[in-house]
């Protein structure tokens, strides 16, 4: 059961990190700087990834317990709820017939629609983990290498986004609603 928890949290953290990487790649490949709502969804996704990461780190230390799993799941749920609210707002902004939406669609849907799907799936995964605590017993030893690589990947994604936001906003406190270029350059 404990190994299943480690596996589930590795899958959740990597899914969120890969979605963030895909959004980052789409930003540069399509040449479209992200809007403030897009960036807030990325921020919520980064925060949601902290939940499974905290479980992996506890597991790597050999201190995986029901408490650690519950804290990790609650972090993922709180961040995903906020992210789902932000994504829903952006979906509703572009829901009128004839509205082309913001940015280029990917696999038939815009990135904010995919974000909403990802946040709902993250909430479901965290809720299932909380339900599964009924059968969780004792502590488990995890894989420190996986936790280290996951933390490194998430750290790099966050640092990349920080540099991108600074390039996009320049020295302005807020981003423009519809950014078309990087203000720092």
């Amino acid at each position: 059961m404990a190994r299943l928890y480690v596996l589930a949290n590795v899958a959740t953290a990597w899914c969120l990190a890969l979605v963030l990487l895909a959004a980052f790649a789409a930003q540069f490949l399509s040449g479209e700087p992200p809007c403030p709502l897009c960036l807030m969804q990325r921020i919520a996704m980064m925060m949601a990834a902290l939940g499974p990461l905290s479980v992996l780190v506890a597991s790597a230390r050999g201190a995986l317990s029901s408490r650690e799993i519950a804290v990790g799941a609650s972090i993922a749920i709180l961040a995903s709820l906020l992210g789902a609210c932000i994504a829903t707002r952006q979906v509703l902004l572009h829901i009128l017939p004839g509205d082309p939406g913001f940015g280029a669609p990917m696999l038939g849907y815009h990135l904010y629609t995919w974000c909403l799907v990802v946040f709902v799936c993250t909430i479901l995964a965290a809720a299932l983990q909380l339900c599964g605590l009924t059968w969780f017993q004792g502590q488990a030893q995890g894989a420190p290498a996986i936790a280290r690589v996951t933390a490194l990947l998430l750290g790099l994604v966050i640092v990349g986004n920080i540099l991108s936001v600074i390039a996009e906003a320049g020295f302005a406190w807020h981003l423009p609603d519809n950014p078309t270029r990087y203000l720092l350059f």
Partner: peptide, 18 residues
């Protein structure tokens, strides 16, 4: 800039978890 500050706090949280 405010969004970069939030991301910095998240990075600090990640390091604290680690």
């Amino acid at each position: 800039m405010i969004l970069a500050i939030i991301m910095l706090i998240i990075l600090a949280s990640l390091i604290a978890f680690w």
